[in-house]
Design a protein around this nucleic acid. Structure first.
Lengths: 157, 157
DNA sequence: TGAAATTAGATGCAAATGCATATAATTTGA
DNA sequence: TCAAATTATATGCATTTGCATCTAATTTCA
């Protein structure tokens, strides 16, 4: 009899988190960075997410499946998204030296420049969307809780 | 000179929220409810989200654009998703009596039954994924903050 | 009031996505 | 050690998605 309320709390919490994410994402999709307002390249949110992930690994290369852990895309979709980014000259590939099955990805100089340019506009958009809703302290709390959530996830079934 | 840190905090907060959402959603996608384990219907997360939204409005009907506010889908994609749900007999439509442009949607009895069945499994999945990560109090805090976030969003540009 | 602007939803079409599966490399274990 | 299982990525193909646009209905306001 003590589990049921916890189950309901978890469901309500996820529902609230998910709706907030949908609402924020919808606005960001319509915001300057991804409407190509004041930026010179057209990049979708998912494409940007890959560029951003790569930008956080400045020295080196990332494996495809490492990127896949951070993005909500199937393996095959990511494979093709990366292919498109390569065709546009924003990333480059290399077969993994220590594992012939794998490939390594990194930003090209142009890809890095594009990520930075869009990133700056995106950060402004985020501040404009999220900033008005929460105080600095609330943001810190929210960050801490979502970080803890991500790190503590359980396994269903 | 006091705005820059706030901008960075907002960006970091959104990043953390978004990554948590991706991580949770990935697990939920692979969990029993949407793997059709122990449930008799195959419904995608987005389809379920529409059924769930409709289930929260038990007496009546919802306008298409009202549903669209809650789901991360373009208007045209939702239009077709709803068409598919109708073809499967899970929802029914009616032109809006007070506005000839609009249509009203509601669950059929079967749609309601399917939502309930999947919903029960989904709630179990959520509890299994989110439950281990946070205490009851932390979930309550997270719910409060995401609710406040959703309600206080600003407009970019 | 009535023409122009706006809003709701549908649809053609190209692009993106996911599932199932293929290929190739690595790891495991009898 | 080598056959079987596993892992990493790619690809064929059907489905889903979004953009642009269309139609129809409503609202605005001169």
């Amino acid at each position: 009899m003590s589990k049921a309320p916890h189950v309901r709390t978890a469901a309500a919490t996820w529902e609230s988190l998910f709706r907030a994410q949908v609402a924020v994402m919808r606005r960001l999709n319509e915001a300057p960075a991804f409407r190509q307002v004041g930026v010179s390249h057209k990049v979708s949110v998912k494409e940007y997410d890959v560029l951003f992930t790569l930008s956080r690994c400045p020295e080196g290369w990332l494996r495809l499946h490492e990127i896949n852990d951070r993005v909500l895309l199937s393996q095959s979709s990511l494979s093709r998204l990366v292919e498109r980014l390569q065709n546009r000259g924003l990333i480059e590939r290399q077969t993994a030296p220590d594992d012939g099955r794998g490939i390594l990805i990194r930003l090209t100089p142009e890809g890095r420049a594009v990520q930075k340019e869009i990133g700056r506009a995106h950060v402004r958009d985020i501040a404009a969307v999220v900033g008005p809703a929460l105080s600095e302290d609330e943001m810190a709390d929210l960050m801490r809780l979502t970080e803890k959530l991500r790190q503590g996830l359980g396994h269903p079934e």
